[in-house]
Design a protein around this nucleic acid. Sequence first.
DNA 1: TAGATTGTTAATCGATTAACAATC
DNA 2: TAGATTGTTAATCGATTAACAATC
Lengths: 210, 210
Amino acid sequence: MGLPPRTVERLIKYRRLLESYKEAESMFIFSHQLAHMLNLTPVQVRRDLMLIGLSGNHRKGYKVTSLLKLIDKLIDHEDGFNVAVVGLGNLGSAVLRFIQRSNSQMKVVAAFDIDQTKINDASHGIPCYNVSKISYFIQKMKIDIIILTSSSVTAQEVANEVISAGVTGIMNFTSAHLDVPDRIYLKNYDIITSLEEIGYFIKNPLQGKS
Amino acid sequence: MGLPPRTVERLIKYRRLLESYKEAESMFIFSHQLAHMLNLTPVQVRRDLMLIGLSGNHRKGYKVTSLLKLIDKLIDHEDGFNVAVVGLGNLGSAVLRFIQRSNSQMKVVAAFDIDQTKINDASHGIPCYNVSKISYFIQKMKIDIIILTSSSVTAQEVANEVISAGVTGIMNFTSAHLDVPDRIYLKNYDIITSLEEIGYFIKNPLQGKS
DNA sequence: TAGATTGTTAATCGATTAACAATC
DNA sequence: TAGATTGTTAATCGATTAACAATC
């Protein structure tokens, strides 16, 4: 279909919000209600819903269950997504646990590290393999998305390897700039860079948001 | 001065990259070299440098030390930024350690939690206070930026409190949508939402990047 | 001078917002 | 019908890119 990235972002937010309201709230919702809850404009909401082909009722607004069903169909994958974490340090293992606790379609199926003590660590309920065997396990376990929390030094190397093994989605927590082909979806998630950005904008207010 | 957000992002990347090259590389760098290393276009680089008022040499390019000095002046705060983490769970404590290990201007000066066992935990080398006293400590310790890794349920409440205590920068790791005044710089860093976004784009390729 | 680069304006592109017709 | 809402096109805004003059 080809939805704009910002629309995809918002659809995910609509879903998260409405899932918790699903039972309690009325079955229908107006664009301005949804907009108000997420600090958006009603037009933005209507445009997004138009783009995914959902039509509302002029009297009652949009049917919540139809909206949720449609978003699920667009965003979710039938068998969920298989995720692996590379680098089982503090951050890697925290992110791993965080995903496991969430009730999303994201399944962490493996971790990788170079440290032998971590490789034997099964405390997360999933196996941790030696990163040298990453290509093999990506194919065997049909891993879709890699979360990089390894050292910045090896990040590009790991990225190259997982890409040639078939991974097309990477979430990069390292501060390394990764050079990847266009077809790969790369999300940079560098905490320090983001904090420095916040630093600039609190020093020089009146500017853009996240 | 008022730099565009994207320019600020890139300036931070230029700095990170050049800091490691500072000694080894020649003192001057061409826009196309910098661009190539970060998958940007030379024009983008030149435009950014123009915006910060750095002029280059037609023969040699830009002087690396001048560039770094200028970026430092724009991005850094004279005394660094004081950061506090709210919620010392796995994620909070991992993020805390991650920042401590980085060599940035960001100083984590305190943590906050509701759990009494964590409040006594000094294993991070910084005090952890009861979140009920957060306003007091924000003012006392001159905290500039709050990192929210607490439960989504209390996130808005905590945000309101830290904002009225004077904080103007928030990095939100929770999945809660936060409603904050315009003058507050809010960076949403919700891992699950981002993974779901990656999921959509690897299912439907040919689209936007991070 | 010829060639490579910087510096900057104009055109383009994507996303948001304004405006408003259509509908219940 | 009057009023509120949806649906959609046109205008605007911010950021990138194309184009090119100026310079060493």
